[in-house]
Structure formats: structure tokens, C-alpha cells
Amino acid sequence: MPGFSTSTSAIPTTSASDATRGLLLGVAGVVMFALSIPMTRLAGGSAAAPQLDPAFVAFGRAVVAGLLSVAYLAATGARRPRGAEWRLLAMTAGGVVFGWPLLSGLAVRHVDAVHAAVVSGVLPLATAVIAALVLRQRPSRGFWACALAGLALVVGFAAWRGAGGLEAADGLLLGAVVCASAGYVSGARLSGAMSAEQVICWVLVISLPVTLPLALWTRPTAPVAPSAWAGFAYVSLFSMWIGFFAWYRGLALGGTLRVSQVQVLQPFLSMLFAVPLLGERLDATTLVFAVAVLAVVWLGKRQPVGQPKKEARP
């Protein structure tokens, strides 16, 4: 899933060609991330027909992307992190390397990808909420109203799909959203000191001492379908690595406010991809919930968020 920049200012000096390239890269990044949930489901299978262990999918994809990151950092001569950057890198890793992949992978074993796409549709708004709390900003009442409305919608949708009750998988999905949001915020704080590409690479590299042994421990011991390995290859190369490069480069070229708007397409694309890839069904009620969630996210992103109050000097 793409990160949500905490910056609220566009880049006024963006040229027309850079804006176009940035938008195209942003769309490419969103398309890559939109395939993440269906491909994770394809890799792990369902509870009735399991394939790769969700833990192996989560840790193994981080290992593949981490090894590629080692090569990238060496080839570009990237500097080593220093001081407080290590702490922020560790916090980012906890969210986007461990929390989101593992919790979402476990969840889609028990709910379909269309269901997961709707619930995770509040991710941009959740990221904005965590950013406001961490940065001690002062969001407007409209912002908080949108945040509560988004939460109510996804809980209502999950209860409807669960025939009146929430499933454990819904708790996993909401936990995954919180983890990813926290990881995106800490990663965004690092992007002021190093390029976003270097941030995600260092996050993956410092995770290798943990992800590598866990991936080996959870590796498959029985044959799985080739389609499961195809799903694993996708989330390793695109969801965990190349997608971040396209997304962050698009934001840099085209401006955050312009390019980030295409993010509202992601849940719709995830649902559409799940139909041919997984044979899932997209019903009208689910589509209505998805539209409502994305409308709330779109409105929430346009609500004013004030800067922290300055402390009075004695």
C-alpha cells in the first residue's frame, strides 16, 4: 500500500512535463499497490485451500526486497542513517514490514480480497489521523467527523458481511491499517533527511536480521500451486519495493496534492482485480460501501489541519 504524505503543500514550480510524468508514476504506483491484496490472497490461499503460510509471505517478501535494497543502496552510494534516524527506521519497519503484511496476510485467509479492500480503504484517513496526533496538529471538527464516519462505515460494512457480527479477520485488518499508518508517518518524517527510496530500502535492510531467519523458519515444506508462487513474487518485487519507487517519485515530480488524489482509486482497483484473479463476486452493496468510504476519505483530506500551538514563552 502507498504511503500517505503528511505534507499539505503542493509544489508550485512543477513544470507541465514533470506534472504529467509525476501523475503517470503515481497512477503506476497505485495500480501496483492495488494488486497487493489480491496477490497476497493468491499467495496464501484461503482457510479452505491454504497455500503459502501468511507468515512466510510477509517475511519472505521483505527478504527479497531487502536483498534488492542492499544492492540499490550500494550502487547509489547512499549514506548510512545516523542518530534518531535509526529509531524512526525501526518504527517504520514495525508498521510496513511486519505489521501490515503479516496482519493483512492472516486476514485474507478468512475474508475475500474485495472485503479487505473496502476495510483498508480508510488507510489514507487513518494515516492522517496518526500524523495529526504525532505532530500535535489541530485538525478541524470536519476532519474528525470524517475520521469517525470512515471508521463507522468500515465497521458497519464488516458487520454486514459477517451477518450482524464482526469477524476476527476484521480486527486483523483494522490492526493492519493502524500499523501501516504509523509506519507511513514515521517514514514521512524521515523523508526530509533522505530520499524516500532510500528510506524504504534502509527499512528493509535493517529488518533483514529478523525477516531472514523468520522466512527460513516458515518456508513451505510441501508443494504449493504455481499461482501461489506468482502471487509471492508479485508482492515481493512490486508491493514491497518497485511500487514505493514509482509512488514516491511521482509525488516528488508531480506534487503531493496533485498526485496523491489518484490514491482514492486503489480500493476500487483492488476489487476489480480480485474478480478475474480470484473469481470473487462484486455485489452492489459492497460497491456502495466502497464509494461511501472513499467519499469520506476524499472529504477528510480536504479538511483544514492547523499547525501545533506554540508554547507561550515566559
Rank of each mutant, 00 (worst) to 15 (best):
M271D: 07
A290M: 13
L299N: 00
S7I: 10
S140P: 05
A295M: 12
G77F: 03
I200R: 06
A182M: 15
S15W: 01
L67I: 13
L102G: 11
V293Y: 11
R21Y: 01
A290Q: 07
F33C: 07
V134E: 10
A47M: 03
A65V: 08
L172E: 05
C179Q: 03
L212H: 07
A90C: 02
A55R: 14
L42M: 15
L269Q: 10
S17C: 00
V291N: 09
A290T: 14
S270N: 05
E167W: 05
S260Q: 15
Q263I: 13
G255Y: 04
L89F: 06
L103K: 09
P50T: 01
M39L: 14
A246Y: 08
W100A: 05
F273L: 13
G250V: 06
D170Y: 02
G22E: 06
P223D: 07
A128V: 13
L174A: 07
A233P: 10
V199Y: 02
G22I: 05
K309L: 14
L173D: 02
P226A: 09
L253P: 09
W241P: 00
G44I: 04
V296H: 10
L133G: 05
A74P: 00
L24P: 00
P308A: 11
G231F: 09
T6H: 15
W241N: 14
G165N: 11
W100T: 02
C146V: 02
C201E: 06
S239L: 09
V27E: 00
E85T: 05
L277D: 05
L35I: 06
A246G: 02
G3Q: 07
A284L: 15
A47F: 08
L123G: 00
S270F: 02
G192C: 03
A132H: 06
I11N: 14
G77M: 05
G83M: 11
S270Q: 04
L174W: 03
T285E: 12
F4M: 15
T218G: 00
T92I: 00
L237N: 09
A295K: 05
V63C: 13
V178P: 02
L212T: 13
V305E: 06
G45K: 02
P223K: 10
A180T: 00
L265I: 05
L216T: 08
Q266K: 08
V205F: 04
W229P: 06
A116T: 11
Y72I: 14
V224G: 04
V96M: 14
L35W: 04
A132M: 04
F157H: 09
F238Y: 09
G77I: 01
S140G: 12
A75I: 10
L103W: 08
V30R: 02
G66I: 02
R82G: 14
A222G: 11
G150D: 02
F59I: 03
A292F: 11
T6P: 02
L212V: 14
R189G: 05
I206S: 02
E280L: 10
G66A: 08
V259F: 01
A34H: 03
G254D: 04
A28N: 03
A128L: 15
R249V: 05
L257A: 14
V64M: 10
V205L: 08
F268I: 07
Q303L: 01
W100G: 00
L148T: 09
P314M: 01
G175E: 03
E85N: 03
T14N: 01
A34Q: 04
G243Q: 03
G231R: 09
G44T: 13
V134D: 13
D112L: 12
V177A: 04
P124M: 11
Q266S: 13
Q261Y: 08
